[in-house]
C-alpha cells in the first residue's frame, strides 16, 4: 500500500478533539510542516502532548487549536519563553497538565505495553503528583516498602514525527538515530504520521535494513516535506533558525503585531515551499545547513 500522501490529506487524519503527540525535543526535530497544516486546517480542542516542546506547541496555541497541553516543558530554551503558551495558560484559556519528563514517558509506556500503570521513582516528593490524582498514584510496594509512582496509561490518537527518509510503504529512517522521545509517542499512538526530508525507493531500505527506525506497520501516512522541521533543527542536515525565533518573540510583544506576523510568516503561505520562501528562502536554508556542517 502506498502511504505517501499530501500534507493536506495527512492532516485530515487528525479529528477535532484528538490527543496529538508532537515529536522532537526543544529546538530539535519537531514536525513543523505538519503542525503548520493543522493550524491552517483550524483544528479545534486538541489535547497536545509535547514532552519537552517549544515552537510547535506555541503555533498550535496561537492558531486556537488547543484545549489542553500535556507537557514536561514548553519554552524556546536560551531564546526565551514560549509567548502564546505563557499568555494563554496564565489567562486560563488553555489548560495545562504538567508532568516531569519521565512521568510522561512512563504513562506512554503503560499505554504501549498495555499495562494499567508503569512504576517509577521519578517525581517522588514533587508537587507534580498532587496535580494528577486521576493519572498518578503514589504507592508503597508491599514487599520492599519502597515508595514509587504508578503512572497510568496515556492514550494517544495521533503521533506526529519528522524524520530523514521513508519509502512508499511507510518504513522510516532516522539517521543518525537520534530519536529523543519520538519512539515513546510512536509506540503509544494509534496512528503515526511521518513527515520526511525525502521519500526514497524501497531498495534503499532493503539494502540496509539495520538502518530502519520505524517499521511500516507503525506508520500510517508519509508526507515528503523537505526542511520539514524548520525553524527547529534536523541533525545533521540543518540547525535551528534563530532569526525566526527572535522575530516571533519580538512580534509576540504586541497582539496585533503578532496576528499579522503569524498570518504572513506561518499560516498564510499556501504551500510549505511558500512558507520557506516567506522565511528567508534559499538564503536561510543555506545558513541553517552551514551551522551544523
Amino acid at each position: 500500500m502506498d502511504k505517501v500522501t499530501t500534507i493536506e490529506e495527512a492532516a485530515a487524519l487528525v479529528p477535532d478533539g484528538a490527543t496529538v503527540a508532537i515529536g522532537g525535543l526543544s529546538m530539535n526535530s519537531a514536525p513543523m510542516a505538519m503542525v503548520r497544516e493543522l493550524v491552517r486546517q483550524a483544528k479545534r480542542d486538541l489535547t497536545v502532548v509535547g514532552i519537552v516542546a517549544g515552537m510547535p506547541v506555541d503555533w498550535l496555541i496561537a492558531g486556537g487549536c488547543v484545549k489542553t497541553v500535556v507537557s514536561g516543558l514548553v519554552s524556546f530554551e536560551g531564546l526565551g519563553l514560549a509567548p502564546n503558551f505563557r499568555a494563554m495558560v496564565q489567562a486560563g484559556t488553555v489548560g495545562i497538565e504538567e508532568y516531569s519528563e519521565h512521568l510522561l514517558i512512563c504513562r506512554l509506556q503503560a499505554q504501549a505495553y498495555n499495562l494499567p500503570f508503569m512504576p517509577t521513582k521519578a517525581g517522588l516528593g514533587t508537587d507534580v503528583l498532587a496535580l494528577h490524582p486521576d493519572t498518578l498514584r503514589q504507592e508503597v510496594d508491599p514487599t520492599t516498602g519502597e515508595h514509587y509512582v504508578a503512572c497510568t496509561r496515556l492514550p494517544v490518537d495521533v503521533a506526529l514525527v519528522h524524520a530523514h527518509a521513508a519509502d512508499a510503504r511507510g518504513n522510516v529512517r532516522v539517521e543518525p538515530k537520534l530519536l529523543w522521545m519520538d519512539s515513546e509517542i510512536v509506540n503509544a499512538a494509534a496512528v503515526t504520521i511521518a513527515t520526511v526530508e525525502r521519500v526514497v525507493p524501497g531498495r534503499e531500505f532493503t539494502d540496509a535494513p539495520e538502518r530502519t527506525t520505524y517499521p511500516r506497520f507503525m506508520i500510517h501516512a508519509v508526507v515528503e516535506a523537505p526542511y520539514g522541521a524548520f525553524p527547529t533543527s534536523l541533525f545533521p542536515n540543518y540547525g535551528h533558525r534563530s532569526a525566526f525565533f527572535d522575530d516571533y518573540s519580538t512580534a509576540a510583544r504586541d497582539p496585533q503585531t503578532f496576528k499579522a506576523f503569524f498570518a504572513e510568516r506561518v499560516t498564510g503561505p499556501p504551500t510549505w515551499r511558500d512558507f520557506l520562501d516567506a522565511n528567508g528562502g534559499a538564503g536561510a536554508l543555506l545558513d541553517i545547513a552551514r551551522r551544523t556542517a
Binding site: 507537557s71 514536561g72 519554552s75 496564565q90 516531569s100 521519578a122
Partner: peptide, 28 residues
C-alpha cells in the same frame, strides 16, 4: 521551582517553562 510563580497553580502570576527533567533528577 521552574513551573509557576504565584500561589494558585492554575492561575499563576507567571507561567514558567515547566518541570521537565528536574522533576525526575531531584527524586532519583
Amino acid at each position: 521551582n521552574n513551573s509557576v510563580i504565584g500561589a494558585e497553580y492554575h492561575k499563576p502570576r507567571v507561567r514558567l517553562p515547566g518541570t521537565a527533567g528536574l522533576g525526575d533528577m531531584g527524586s532519583i
